Simulated assay, not measured.
Amino acid sequence: MKIALAALAIVVLATISLGAFITMPAGLDPIQIEATAPNVKRGAYLARVAGCVACHTDASGGGAPFAGGVALESKFGTFYSPNITQDAQSGIGDWSLEDFARALRHGISPGGTPYYPAFPYAFYASLNDRDVSDLWAALRTVPADATPSRDHDVGFPFSLRSGLRVWRAVFAAPPVVETDPARSAAWNRGRFIADGLAHCGACHTPRNLAGAPMLERAYTGDPAMLDGGSSPPIDAATLRANGWTREALITALRTGIAPDGDVLGGSMKEVVSDGTSYLLPLHLEDLATFLLDED
């Protein structure tokens, strides 16, 4: 009897502790951003490469730039990108730079609510203060649009956003990109683009049943993407084995045309048209250098 009561007490205490953990506001520690002179043009470029334009602009539905509403379907439900225009009510017009940095790099809203990982904040954690400041300066030039953000269509228990604190505690996030002094500057820049800003691994790395990326299998492709599609492996060994050259890879990222003359399909079509086609020639070279693991 005593053993049963002790076990029950442990379960109750664990439940209470878990409840306190998941309901506690997250990530509201002060965020310090080093003061820099913002570069709006550079920020606009980062917004393109990072996928902000593609994910937050419902072009097919006639939506205003950055007004959100793009549906991201998954096995957990449908997520809708939010309005990130300068509208104070529907967008992020009343945010501070610090609010933006916390949301972008930590996936935490100004009110302390965690964002779903459909927003690739873990990859944006590699952006430095200058990147964040420039991106913020560019978004500040976006005209306000009052289109309200759509609620996510996610069923129970995934609708319990507080449970994301447990999910984050259990599953490791992609590591912050750091410069490898043993590799060339081009390789390191390409790694920052792929592992950070452009978050290539978000689609080309398989995920487990909980939707967390299997980091040990980075870039080996995902045959069962969350949206029901599939992505091919783009690790260096596979790319080379399939005959991809630096020139072919650069052409595909710039035009969406594969070496065999076929057009890249699926979500990659949008990635190219709204993202990689805008990469500077130098950065296309860098990305190819990293993906093919050349120096």
Rank of each mutant, 00 (worst) to 15 (best):
R48P: 00
W167M: 10
A101Q: 09
A59T: 14
R165C: 07
A138E: 08
I84C: 08
R183P: 08
A59C: 02
P117C: 10
L97W: 06
L135C: 06
K75A: 07
G163P: 02
F66R: 04
N128F: 04
G111Y: 00
A64C: 00
P157C: 05
A88E: 15
V53Y: 14
C52K: 11
R130T: 15
C52Y: 08
A186P: 00
A186G: 00
L104K: 04
G62S: 06
A125Y: 02
C52G: 08
S90E: 13
D58I: 03
F79H: 09
A88N: 07
G107D: 04
T179L: 12
T78N: 03
V176F: 05
S109W: 00
I108H: 01
V177H: 13
Y115C: 05
G43P: 07
I92D: 06
F79W: 12
R102Y: 04
Y45R: 05
A67F: 07
G61V: 07
P174T: 12
D131M: 11
R42D: 13
I84T: 10
S149P: 08
I108T: 13
Q86S: 12
Q89T: 15
V154H: 02
F123G: 00
D134N: 14
D58Q: 06
A185C: 02
F100M: 06
R161M: 11
R165H: 13
F171I: 06
F156D: 03
A137S: 14
F76H: 06
P148D: 13
F79V: 11
P117W: 13
A169S: 13
R183V: 10
I84G: 06
T113F: 04
S81L: 04
D153H: 04
I92N: 10
A169G: 15
R165Y: 03
R102A: 08
L72P: 00
G91F: 06
S184A: 10
